[in-house]
């Protein structure tokens, strides 16, 4: 015990971040969402093996693209939501600590990103195990890790804004539909507008800003090298086509930081509700 007159000694910000990161890892040891996510990732990773003959290596990128878009992204969103909701009952303790919520949230988000991204990296394991490792597989795996991290933090942020479990689930599924189909449908609806026709870079920029679209375009046109009819359509399109992989990396980083910021704002907004 310390003498009452002493000023209590507290850990550094880095110490709090580390403690929160370790706690996040420990808390997932019994999280069924994590085990479901790992199982799903391995199933998606094994899909290329369905390719007839010995073409599984060449077809891996196409299979993994669709597996990530339609399954792993949603699973990552749910993992992020469950992470945010798991501690909802404990905010009264956490927010009353002298370190404040910033370092705790940073450590927790970092733990979640590492865990989700790390487990998603297993997506290449089945093809690698069958001797089908290629550069394309490596690029798609890194992209899948990035998308997974982005989705986990979007789900995480939604979990801090929508505290109720059922509403949180609805919000996550709605967010997933917006990212997967909503942006594309909106862009399709806008495509014929004269103003968009006159400024195609704006249309492209919106497409580039959506991580699922950026991943899709990167895999189809940069990794799979599908025929691209839009070449020469504009400077931005050409730049994107030439730097798709780098852009996907930057975009994922920006979205991860945005997710963390939104989570922090959501938690701060709840100060009077804990």
């Amino acid at each position: 015990m310390h003498a009452v007159s002493e000023i209590p000694s507290l850990p550094s910000v880095r110490g709090v971040v580390g403690a929160a990161l370790r706690r996040e890892w420990l808390s997932h040891r019994l999280n069924r969402f994590l085990y479901s996510h790992v199982a799903l990732v391995l199933v998606v990773g094994a899909l290329p093996l369905l390719t007839p003959g010995d073409g599984f290596s060449r077809g891996a990128a196409w299979w993994l693209l669709h597996g990530v878009l339609y399954a792993v992204s949603l699973s990552s969103l749910l993992l992020g939501l469950s992470s945010a909701h798991a501690e909802a009952e404990e905010y009264v303790w956490i927010m009353g600590q002298p370190a404040g919520i910033g370092p705790w949230l940073t450590g927790k988000a970092a733990g979640l990103v590492l865990l989700t991204g790390g487990s998603t990296a297993l997506i290449c394991a089945p093809v690698m195990a069958m001797g089908g490792g290629t550069r394309a597989l490596a690029v798609v795996t890194v992209g899948a890790v990035g998308i997974s991290a982005v989705c986990a933090l979007v789900g995480f942020a939604l979990g801090f804004w929508v505290r109720d479990g059922v509403r949180g689930l609805i919000a996550v599924v709605a967010g997933w539909f917006v990212m997967l189909f909503g942006v594309d449908l909106l862009l399709l609806a806008l495509a014929g507008a004269p103003w968009v026709q006159a400024n195609p870079d704006v249309w492209i920029a919106l497409l580039m800003a959506n991580p699922l679209d950026a991943f899709r375009i990167t895999v189809l046109f940069s990794v799979e090298r599908a025929a691209f009819s839009g070449l020469g359509a504009g400077a931005l399109t050409n730049w994107w086509s030439a730097n798709a992989v780098m852009w996907l990396g930057v975009l994922c980083l920006v979205w991860v930081m945005l997710g963390g910021l939104l989570a922090w704002l959501g938690l701060r907004r709840r100060t009077d509700d804990v």
Partner: peptide, 27 residues
Amino acid sequence: SFLPQAPRFHPRLTTGQTACFYGELRG
């Protein structure tokens, strides 16, 4: 140090892990 009414904790963490975490936050 504040003891709230009807305290609850992360349900998947053990008693020891929970105490160690809050101990770390207080050095």
